[in-house]
Amino acid sequence: MSIRLAGVAIFLVAALYAWTAQDYTASFGDVLGPSVFPVMVGIPAMALALSLVVFPGGSVSWPSGPRLLRQAMALAALIAYALLLEPLGFPLATAAVIAAVAMVLDGPPLKSSLIGIIGSLSLWVLFDQLLGLPIDFLGTLFGG
């Protein structure tokens, strides 16, 4: 069933892709223009996706509820990091994401937090002090 659904999804994306490509026109440039190659890619993709819907191959076993929850939690931590990196600044945000991912992976909370703090500080020293990357210590939230 998963394969069939994926086939439908890929078919729709490929169809939209090939359809959109027709609008890309240029009166100058080369003979082929910007739209032919996407159409050449999109149409076989539609055909292959359709064949997966009609003749699905293989089976998929999705993770059970609790595991799915762990994955969702880890993803939430990653997205939170992308959101908070600039406001919080590098060391705080990185310490938090390391600790959070470690705990999702069943690390003991105290040790996980410790690894977060040590890890983020050493990475900050390496990247900001030694390599001179523009990574702020404090984020915009603290006027850094």
Partner: peptide, 14 residues
């Protein structure tokens, strides 16, 4: 693994 993977993730982000 619980100590290693988070560091890998952090390094990927940086």
């Amino acid at each position: 693994t619980w100590a290693l993977m988070p560091l890998v993730v952090a390094i990927s982000f940086i």
